[in-house]
Design a protein around this nucleic acid. Structure first.
Lengths: 240, 240
DNA sequence: AGATTACAAATTGTATACAATTCTGTTATG
DNA sequence: CATAACAGAATTGTATACAATTTGTAATCT
């Protein structure tokens, strides 16, 4: 029950951030309906500004707007998941390469601190903060690389990655990826651009490999596939 | 003076496309004010739907929305121009690499036809269509690559590239780039992935090199700079 | 009883009305 | 005459009202 007292200016930015964070931290799970009226009531604004926020989120593919049927938190398909990680690989290759050229001592300090905090978060079993800090590491790297366009794209991709990881993660915890970041910093500090790129590629591949992206277990999504056998036998099973 | 008789459904999509095309073809030059009332009148809809369209265009960075001051067709800065081409290089590397794996004979036919039409357009001195077809070539390649995310990003980047080329192009016509596309098709058809990537990199670099991206000449943008000499002598020149 | 259709409730899409802000042209003042 | 202050107009931001669409429920018919 928050009320809009956040300065009157940049209301939508504030609301955007709130919803964004809620989705990222999974307080709003994939598939959750985002009713305009409800959100408007929560934030104390009219549907107009909520629509603006939802439009922005939908453009970033974090929510899906179905015509006349409202917005829901995106449920990334397996294809989308693969595309997302593939896109990340290509973009982060560029980011790492550029970052190698431009990185400063101060930057290395910041990155190191981020990795430390990430470790602590996971040590405290604070998964959502861990995920967020891991994302922050990648985004900081993009900031260092200095290409705003790549940075924005990566921000979207990192967010979607979080949705994907949340939705498709297998039992094997993804705690193993922390050291990847450390190694990456070392390579960057050494100015070893080739190695840094290779490490990033492996890192992203490792994350993706830990997911259940086989066509088999799509959970909520592919209803047709899930019920295909049932549908075929429908007349047979027919009961009461 | 078009009226909204386009089926009532997907009005905004139609309007979006109209505005998008107008910007791409430079009927709406960079810097042009896009007043909500005016556009609403033109398309026979209320400001509500125009705002939706402008919001989408602003997300794609084709239009800039300045708070309380309305929307204008984006004037890409030199930094943005460089970032855009850099981003394209990284993304299209990925696109070409993937396309090499998945390209079919039919695809090659389509690409070849696109290049032919592009040639014809330039032969007819139809510059705007030439630019559009050149963009279509790159986008078709992304479609072949099969990664929707990269495809969407590239669509944005290609559009922005058009804005940039239009704004920063030097005297040397960019007619020389046609053969690049042809060579690229050959490399793709041969499955020579390394060569195809190299050709794409050179191609994009060639386009960028033909632009005036030195800090000096920002044309319409830096009014201060343009009129600086005049301003200095202002009191002298002063005449009724 | 089961299926189909008609109606009702809820939600989104669009238009309009009002509030807040910026821009422009005029007037007042040093 | 130049600068500053002000008022009006124009434009954007937000809220609300109405229209269109979808979805759930009940009634009707075979």
């Amino acid at each position: 029950m928050k009320i809009a007292e956040k300065g009157k200016r940049n209301q939508d930015n504030w609301i955007y951030q709130e919803v964004f964070d809620a989705i990222l931290e999974q307080r709003l799970a994939p598939g959750t309906k985002l009713s305009e009226d409800a959100l408007g009531e929560v934030f104390g604004v009219s549907r107009t500004v909520i629509r603006k926020v939802l439009l922005r989120l939908s453009h970033e593919k974090i929510v899906a707007i179905r015509p006349n049927r409202g917005a829901v938190v995106s449920i990334p398909s397996i294809k989308e998941a693969k595309d997302t990680f593939d896109a990340r690989r290509w973009i982060e290759r560029g980011v790492v390469r550029r970052a190698c050229e431009t990185i400063s001592k101060a930057d290395i300090g910041i990155l190191t601190k981020l990795v430390q905090k990430e470790h602590e978060a996971y040590a405290d079993n604070n998964k959502s903060e861990g995920i967020q800090l891991s994302g922050a590491f990648h985004l900081k790297l993009a900031e260092i690389a200095g290409n705003e366009t790549l940075q924005e794209y990566l921000k979207e991709l990192v967010t979607r990655s979080s949705l994907i990881v949340a939705h498709y993660e297998s039992n094997s915890a993804h705690t193993c990826t922390h050291n990847d970041h450390k190694d990456l910093i070392t390579a960057l500090a050494d100015g070893n651009s080739d190695k840094a790129v290779a490490l990033m590629e492996d890192h992203l591949q490792a994350i993706e490999d830990k997911l259940n992206l086989s066509e088999a277990d799509s959970e909520t999504n592919n209803l047709k596939q899930i019920f295909s056998s049932v549908a075929i036998n429908r007349t047979d099973v027919h009961q009461t």
